[in-house]
């Protein structure tokens, strides 16, 4: 029973990270109908920036804020410089651009910071809480991760639901041409969508880095699990991304704990395939509507 509780808590903590990255993927999908395969590489770069700041003697919190700010700028620039050119082109163009960006960023990181993974500090202790005489697999840092992701999700939900910017972001995502006719600067909304997504991704990168270490391709598995979470939740749904992320986290934790860590990627793949076969629109998809 203790093991089950341990695995559940660990799954929730990891799931929060997958949820944050899945949320980033969903934000971009909703805004521009593009799956950002470079999401993992983008958050890798911002985490490297944070790591460099910490290594230079700056406080962790400053590094975290700078990483998120860098993510916002990076996301906006990516949309303006690269994505805008392929937004109205066939979807394969965007796939190729994001894959190209992934390869480019990983190579660039290797050249600048070398391929050797480096450590990244945690905000709080990573030693599990002691319950009775047992130390569980859930630490103050895990609590921090879960709380931060929950807060970010709530803040984004409030942004979309209660602000004029959120209204325009949603309008631009649902029907860009109609939104344009009503005076919405759709291009700007896309840029903001990409910036928000990359900011959330950067935060996720800094949160997960203490356990994965920082390396050019260390965040690739996170992207795969987050993509599975996003598909599971329905690519349209931010709430689905959160629930999908936690579900994936739990499943991977149980599979790793009971059957061995090597089977975890296979479990993720199986979940992806089952979702695509049984409910391709995901659990939370509201409709099958697609922009054409």
């Amino acid at each position: 029973m203790t093991q089950f509780i341990d695995l559940t808590l660990s799954g929730i903590s990891n799931g929060a990270i997958y949820a944050a990255v899945a949320l980033a993927l969903v934000l971009i999908w909703r805004a521009t109908r593009i799956v950002n395969f470079a999401q993992g590489a983008m958050l890798m770069i911002t985490t490297y920036i944070a790591a460099a700041l910490v290594e230079a003697g700056n406080p962790y919190w400053l590094a975290l804020v700078v990483a998120v700010a860098a993510g916002l700028v990076f996301g906006a620039l990516t949309e303006l410089v690269l994505i805008r050119r392929v937004e109205s082109a066939p979807p394969i163009n965007a796939v190729i651009v994001t894959l190209g960006l992934l390869v480019f960023l990983e190579a660039l990181a290797g050249m600048i910071w070398s391929d050797t993974p480096r450590a990244f500090p945690a905000a709080f202790s990573i030693q599990g809480y002691e319950v009775g005489h047992t130390r569980i697999l859930f630490s103050p840092n895990s609590t921090f991760i879960v709380c931060v992701v929950a807060l970010v999700a709530l803040a984004l939900g409030a942004l979309f639901r209660y602000t004029s910017l959120g209204l325009k972001l949603r309008a631009a995502a649902f029907a860009p041409e109609v939104a344009r006719l009503l005076g919405v600067r759709v291009g700007r909304m896309f840029t903001i969508g990409w910036a928000l997504a990359a900011g959330v991704g950067a935060l996720a990168g800094a949160l997960v880095a203490p356990s994965t270490f920082v390396g050019p391709s260390n965040f690739d598995p996170i992207l795969i699990f987050a993509f599975t979470a996003a598909v599971l939740g329905g690519l349209e749904s931010p709430l689905g991304a959160i629930v999908g992320g936690v579900l994936i986290g739990l499943v991977l934790s149980y599979v790793s704990g009971y059957e061995g860590e090597a089977l975890a990627p296979l479990a993720a793949l199986a979940m992806l395939l089952l979702t695509l076969m049984l409910r391709p629109t995901g659990i939370f998809a509201a409709s099958r509507e697609r922009r054409v």
């Binding site: 602000t163 004029s164 910017l165 209204l167 649902f174 029907a175 939104a179 009503l182 919405v184 700007r188």
Partner: peptide
Amino acid sequence: GLFSGLTVLENVMVGAERFRSSGWVGSLLG
């Protein structure tokens, strides 16, 4: 051509956005 994921009121509010003079930063910061 209504926004399917927005309520009727929200749909019409998008049409009224031309009267807004404050920018998106103000909206973001509430």
